[in-house]
Design a protein around this nucleic acid. Sequence first.
DNA 1: CTGTATCCCGGTCGATACTG
DNA 2: CAGTATCGACCGGGATACAG
Lengths: 113, 113
Amino acid sequence: MRCPVEATLNVIGGKWKAVLVWHLLEGGVLRFGELRRLLPGITQKMLTQQLRELEAAGVISRTVYAEVPPRVEYAVTAHGRSLRPLLEAMHAWGLQHCLQRDDDIAMPQNFVM
Amino acid sequence: MRCPVEATLNVIGGKWKAVLVWHLLEGGVLRFGELRRLLPGITQKMLTQQLRELEAAGVISRTVYAEVPPRVEYAVTAHGRSLRPLLEAMHAWGLQHCLQRDDDIAMPQNFVM
DNA sequence: CTGTATCCCGGTCGATACTG
DNA sequence: CAGTATCGACCGGGATACAG
């Protein structure tokens, strides 16, 4: 990889990754089902996959509790927490951008309100 | 848009978009061929496509000069300039957290688009 | 020089069924 | 509850040819 900007996009540029990290930064520790409810439209498969990739990047942690019923909790790591200013900048820019040019932006096919 | 973070990713989350805007913020007005040289590996088709989508989002402007040979210049709009802090944050984060292993080995010089 | 227009391959993603 | 497995449709994106 030749450009740091690209490197960052590789970490949080996935279809749901930035939003996932954003929710985990806001909500603290969250369970699998809670995350699924926070992202209407995501499939179980994609949620698992994106979480695994974020975990592999060292951004989030995954804790499995040997209980019945099973419980798995996700949280941002110290490394992931360093993304907060970036995600806040994205959130702020998105707010401003949406208000001004909402109808001009091409929405993804699976866009869910 | 349900989540402003997603909205921002829709604008600069494409494969080459963030890097394109980054280069245009750094280099000012750039021609099509100049951008192509700045992004080794991008195809003509993708460059055109990503530029068109950035233009549709109001981030960059496209100016065609009726000359022979043709000349088309791209530049960030005032709206696009508001992305600078965001891209700088992405650049900084990528440098700090992901790019330690990057050396100065460039693309092979026989690599021609 | 700056693009369109095709073709097509591989990965992405959703749907569904099944498991510990 | 929190996954895994599998199949298939879709589309992003590369290669190539052609155009203004």
